[in-house]
Design a protein around this nucleic acid. Structure first.
Length: 804
DNA sequence: AGCACGCCGACT
DNA sequence: GTCGGCGTGCTC
């Protein structure tokens, strides 16, 4: 019976976003399986591309002549049945191509690279061969190939003297090392010894050494050379005489070679114990319940995760723990590895491609049963998952900002339903979406209100910058903050300074009264557009002139808001010349490992003040930091995004938690032009619940998530008028299928209206229940496919986090 | 994406 | 007359 494989091909377009039928050659029949990568001919020229086998069946849907699969790339399926199903779901939910989803789930080295070579199949003029092929008979096509040479090649191809050969290169390489293995038995070696001269001391010793290896695991050559008296030459002699064999062994690139000190379970508080018990009970009952652990900083959320993982491992299941990229510090890894040892695999962007591949293989081979990783680790090929944990679940980095625009939280919940296991979402400041679900009973709320060390949360002092500016204009430092910094310097204690860089220069604020220009219709800040010299609302398109004086207090001190870290560093150095300042921002942490190095230097007291952007707010824990200063609390508030308050609250709460975590009490100083703003006030009080209630009312009033679902369409074109026209055309198509409950915002131009010479427009749909919406959006994507030929790009983001 | 087919302007 | 421009259609 002929076997037909349904293959998803690596051609990310709308038209090819479906399985293609291929014939399975008899030679491949016995080991081909769904989930394997294959190389298949595709299109007129039969160029070779990578594909994924979805299913194997005995009937083809396609009427025409089927092409055979050229080769199977994998020995084992690269994607198991669960992840295959997940890729379909993900493609549908995020409006992405299934091939893009499949590639996203795998380490990047498993994505094929393509190349094309020209191969001579007949004799040609030797002079031509010399000039074209440099004397060889093969030549790779690349961008450096001159057009006239290309012409000559095509001519030869038409004459049948040259063939174009396509290559699919799997870059997934297994690292191999050489090991030493005795080739003879103990007795045979002894026999070999008798043939030696007495003086051949080294060889005698080598034989004894080989005898001692029998029954032992084969040592690596490099270890033998490093730890024994034998040289490379001795080993070679042994191999030549047939005493030993040099064998290739697979090795993992180990990103954490240092042995970690084991750590012990900590005693749990009653609250922690209750949380662990609740989740562990769920794991025993195979329940796919979602728990929201709302725990203040220092309440020991991590210990709850670790003990839950421990219980899950005892049930012979596996565990997946997601952590935001910036929180995935060496300290964090050490803590988990210290508890669970070598069965932990770590996946994050700091690893090389090869290291990621090796960690992935360890998981796939069931050598690792605990996975710790950032967003994409949610696709780790674990089987029999017992719990999925997502720390800092409110973090925006869990949402991928390119296709497939998935949220790791949604994937985690999907997988938990597949594995019948619970999910823990943990945060000191849960996203409103999650907290609201806990309110409705969709998730189960577990609160940790006590700090482990029984210390009070640090006192937060608000400094009104409107007042400070009057005394000392144009300084980023209020007298209060400056005095506190000097005080810590004198005591030999450390300080952390946060510069909030979000919303840099994009909005304007009055320096006298803190007034931020708002849209009259939307309760959202207007964004400054320098290209059109106007203030615009990104939601409704409202536009007005840039004010010269403050509409609130008539001051002329109304201007763009924003400051860079370098400028602040220079200013601070001038104000406190003796302070050793460490600056941490995108510029100083670009290189691999730079982030960790900076943190280590600070931990080693190489500096007194750590100055940085948001990245300093996460997870770092230095016992000698007794002061946290926030230079500008309000910049995020000026963003044209309804989540601005939520982000500000989260950020302030997080940095506050950095102060005085050990025995020393900490202080927090927050500079703000809007000290009365509710997000800042609730953060000062460490009152998440209060903020949650208040913000929910604001969201309710404005009709924003979690009261509404949202979906964002982005339309772009090199010509602005065409982008605008197409957007309105799409909006017109949408309205008829929507109910009265749905709200269509826009089309409006995006805040950065032009990127790479393309003009961007967006449409945001807010809705509660629109059964027809998903299908209509998919249809729009389909029908606008023709337009991509004419320079249009249409993108869809389900539940966007960024509205800029 | 990338390849072939197809239909119009400036060259041997 | 042909070479080659890129608009259009299709890929099992």
């Amino acid at each position: 019976m002929p076997q037909i494989a349904k293959v998803i091909v690596d051609v990310p377009t709308m038209q090819t976003n479906r399985p293609y039928d291929y014939q399975v050659p008899d030679t491949l029949l016995d080991h081909i399986q769904p989930g394997m990568r294959v190389a298949v001919p595709f299109g007129k020229g039969d160029r070779l591309i990578q594909g994924f086998i979805l299913t194997i069946q005995d009937q083809a849907n396609f009427e025409g002549q089927l092409k055979p699969i050229t080769a199977v790339i994998d020995l084992q399926p690269a994607v198991n049945s669960e992840l295959l199903q997940l890729s379909s779901w993900l493609a549908e939910r995020t409006y992405a191509f299934q091939i893009t989803c499949l590639q996203t789930m795998l380490p990047s080295v498993m994505r094929a690279k393509y190349s094309k070579t020209a191969q001579l199949v007949d004799e040609i003029d030797p002079a031509l061969q010399a000039s074209l092929f440099n004397g060889n008979d093969e030549l790779t096509f690349d961008q450096s190939l001159a057009p006239d040479k290309l012409k000559q090649l095509m001519h030869l191809q038409r004459q049948g003297k040259l063939e174009v050969v396509y290559h699919v290169d799997d870059r997934a390489r297994v690292k191999q090392l050489t090991a030493i293995e005795p080739a003879l038995s103990f007795e045979q070696l002894e026999e070999a010894r008798t043939g030696l001269r007495k003086s051949a001391q080294k060889q005698q010793q080598l034989i004894s050494y080989l005898q001692s290896l029998i029954g032992q695991p084969n040592p690596l050559l490099k270890d033998v050379l490093a730890t024994t008296i034998f040289t490379r030459e001795n080993i070679k002699t042994g191999a030549d005489k047939g005493w030993l064999r040099q064998v290739k062994v697979e090795a993992y690139r180990n990103p954490y070679p240092k042995t970690v000190t084991t750590t012990q379970k900590m005693a749990l508080t009653d609250e922690q114990k209750r949380a662990v018990d609740a989740v562990v009970t769920a794991t025993q009952n195979q329940s796919d319940r979602v728990f929201l652990v709302e725990g203040i900083t220092g309440s020991g959320k991590t210990e709850v995760y670790l003990q839950t993982i421990d219980a899950v491992l005892q049930q012979a299941k596996t565990a997946l723990m997601l952590v935001p990229e910036i929180a995935l510090t060496p300290q964090m890894v050490k803590r988990v590895k210290g508890r669970f040892g070598d069965q932990v695999a770590v996946l994050h962007s700091g690893l090389s491609e090869g290291e990621k591949y090796d960690e992935w293989r360890r998981i796939e081979r069931k050598e690792a049963s605990v996975v710790v990783g950032a967003r994409s680790a949610v696709f780790a090929p674990l089987e029999n998952i017992g719990v999925i944990i997502m720390d800092e679940e409110h973090e925006a980095s869990y949402k991928q900002d390119e296709s497939p625009r998935y949220h790791a939280r949604d994937v985690a919940i999907w997988r938990s339903q597949y594995h019948h296991c619970p999910v823990i979402l943990g945060s000191a400041t849960p996203s409103l979406e999650s907290r609201a679900r806990a309110q409705k009973g969709v998730y189960q709320l577990l609160r940790l209100t006590q700090r482990i060390n029984q210390q009070p949360l640090p006192a937060v002092e608000l400094v009104d910058m409107r007042v400070a500016m009057k005394q000392q204009a144009s300084s980023n430092f209020s007298p209060a903050l400056l005095d506190a910094l000097k005080d810590r310097l004198q005591k030999g204690e450390q300080s952390v300074l946060l510069l909030n860089r979000r919303g840099f220069s994009s909005f304007i604020m009055c320096r006298d009264c803190g007034f931020v220009l708002q849209c009259p219709n939307c309760d959202i800040s207007l964004t400054l557009h320098m290209d059109t010299h106007s203030m615009k609302c990104h939601y409704c398109g409202h536009e007005e002139a840039i004010p010269r004086t403050c509409p609130n207090c008539q001051s002329r001190q109304i201007r763009y808001f924003g400051t860079g870290t370098q400028k602040v560093e220079a200013e601070l150095q001038e104000l406190i010349p003796t302070a050793r300042i460490l600056r941490m921002d995108v510029d100083t942490t670009r290189k691999k490992g730079a982030h960790a190095k900076l943190l280590k230097r600070f931990g080693d007291h190489d500096a007194d003040i750590l100055l940085g952007t948001q990245m300093i707010a996460k997870g770092l824990d230095f016992p000698d930091v007794t002061l946290v200063g926030v230079i500008n609390a309000d910049t995020a508030l000026g963003l044209p995004d309804f989540r601005a308050s939520e982000r500000t609250f989260q950020l302030l709460t997080q940095v506050s938690g950095r102060a005085g975590r050990a025995d020393k009490t900490g202080a927090v100083i927050v500079q703000s032009f809007n000290p009365e703003n509710y997000a800042i006030q609730f953060a000062k009080q460490h009152d998440y619940e209060g903020f949650y209630q208040y913000e929910m009312a604001v969201r309710h009033r404005g009709g924003y998530p979690p009261y509404y679902f949202t979906v964002q369409l982005t339309i772009s074109h090199p010509e602005e008028a065409l982008a605008a026209k197409k957007s309105f055309q799409i909006a017109r198509q949408l309205r008829p299928v929507l109910s009265d409950q749905a709200i269509v915002l826009g089309p409006t131009p995006k805040s950065i209206a032009r990127i790479n010479n393309r003009y961007f427009y967006q449409i945001v749909i807010k809705y509660k229940q629109e059964p027809q919406l998903q299908a209509k959006l998919a249809e729009i994507l389909e029908t606008t496919q023709i337009d991509t030929r004419h320079g249009f790009k249409i993108g869809l983001d389900n539940e966007p986090l960024q509205f800029t």
